[in-house]
Design a protein around this nucleic acid. Sequence first.
DNA 1: CTGAAAGCGCTTACAG
DNA 2: CTGAAAGCGCTTACAG
Lengths: 346, 346
Amino acid sequence: MTDTARGSSRRYGTRPTMKDVAARAGVGLKTVSRVVNGEPGVTPDTERRVQEAITALGFRRNDSARILRKGRTASIGLVLEDLADPFYGPLSRAVEEVARHHGALLINGSSAEDPAREQELVLALCARRVDGLVVIPAGDDHRYLAPEIAAGVATVFVDRPAGRIEADTVLSDSFGGSRDAVAHLLAHGHRRIGFIGDQPRIHTAKERLRGYRTAMAAAGLPVDDAWVSLGTTEPERVHTAARAMLDAPEPVTALFAGNNRVTVTLVRVLRQCTAPVALVGFDDFELADLVSPAVTVVAQDAARMGRTAAGLLFRRLEGADEPPRREEIPTRLIARGSGEIRPAHD
Amino acid sequence: MTDTARGSSRRYGTRPTMKDVAARAGVGLKTVSRVVNGEPGVTPDTERRVQEAITALGFRRNDSARILRKGRTASIGLVLEDLADPFYGPLSRAVEEVARHHGALLINGSSAEDPAREQELVLALCARRVDGLVVIPAGDDHRYLAPEIAAGVATVFVDRPAGRIEADTVLSDSFGGSRDAVAHLLAHGHRRIGFIGDQPRIHTAKERLRGYRTAMAAAGLPVDDAWVSLGTTEPERVHTAARAMLDAPEPVTALFAGNNRVTVTLVRVLRQCTAPVALVGFDDFELADLVSPAVTVVAQDAARMGRTAAGLLFRRLEGADEPPRREEIPTRLIARGSGEIRPAHD
DNA sequence: CTGAAAGCGCTTACAG
DNA sequence: CTGAAAGCGCTTACAG
């Protein structure tokens, strides 16, 4: 009889519960719970019997039930633009490492740069009752998150600020990094410098443009409208924009790329040019030193951004009750050759 | 009174439940459940009252409770080596897309190529009762998963086969791709070809070595032990191995790299060489065409691997009851220059 | 040292 | 169309 019951409880798709273990070991439910959770107050003999039952039945605690009772899920959500983008790999990994040290798992999803999808994902994670969220926002209005934050979901925004709510934020120094990049080109004799960046609704794109303008202004130089092009990072769009700047009657002698993907496209465009054109890119990429000329970049520290964000998150979860913080991670200019090319004449 | 109760139920960290909504709307619990889940059989007027209560209280259904009752978590686990590795980005993204179409979230973690950590992660995901698992295994003994699979956790192994259990598997054609790569070098006149690959305990490393040996044998050529080096992908290790092959009295005239990271290191090593040495790498990488000479590779389709794996997984979850499958994803040789260099003389 | 009862927040199965 | 009761598999708070 007992054997039959046990047999059927092993059927495909059915798993033994603590109750089954308790029955088999001839103890109470709470005793099984004690053993499973390593709580004290169980005699060695009782413990052994429970362990045997656990092994025999192939019991594994159902954390869904545990989570419901305890109120904490020991998981955090990570919403980013695209898991396949190399910038987010190290960032995700860093968040994961910190989560791991706190015994938490990572649930993540890609927004594909779509605000509606970002919101859908974030709210799905809230419904799962993640303890916290790390969000690289696609949208610019996060009021939908306010009730969740008020209900205790620790939330940190990374790479771009939250829109219309206050929250912990970790950003790269886009403004300072861009200003330095352009100053670097100016120091190498350039006067007509083009900026090709991401869509203007993206915060970092605006900041990088501001850095560009500030550096030009500090050098007392005018900025021709034709030297600035913001838009998608599609190769075709970037290619067209670059060609326009390079084929103008007074062509730019240097280009500053607003991000990773733009930089790579510009490397391709510039190989076709006869006259050398200087290039500095925002954000480093793996083989930047292998291309020739090697590409000068303003490097961001994605792993540090992830670590910092996760650190802030767990501070909140451990009860830190302080106003939202905004951390800025410095960038670093790495001169490799392409940014040190001087203008032909002028 | 009611207001006080409501006020306190909004306290930081406390969230309203269906019961609260029911009380406020003056309906039964089940009616709230019907509205929240869009089930039929609710008058428009009742529905409106419930919706108002939901909005007023900021209610969001607790999926932890739902999951416990329904038995399915609508989440799948993805365990890979390192989220930050560019090979896994597109693979993860592809798995995520398929999961999304099935309404499932992705929980993932990195094993860091450590079998113990792989097991710990996988079992933690099983305790969370993920519906399925996509595993890029680090270890070579997965018997620990047998009870979970028997209990209904759909499991698919990707990139490397499962060890000591039967399970759905999606692999690249490492053997065929490597054989083709080496045949390509042979066709360009090489006779002394070196192979630098990953650690021999990794299945793909063994398969790629087998492809190399098969191609050499098919050409009737001997393989000198000094031409084969398996080990970690640390740049230093790869550098030393390559130098030994290149500085030998009878140096190799071509190198076949067993993976991505090895290829990149070899590009760096070969730039220092005076005599040109041919190179083919297993696995494509983003800027392979920008390096000079551009790098000839055997490309894997990581996204297709991810899609295929997730496809198999959801077939199982939808009840497919068939023996474990093994899908092999073809590779593609992309000639870009480095693999078409001919040996100096001979 | 051990265990019975209540409850976490939902859904299921039924009854009106 | 609507709702009260039971239950998912654990943990909590108590009592022995």
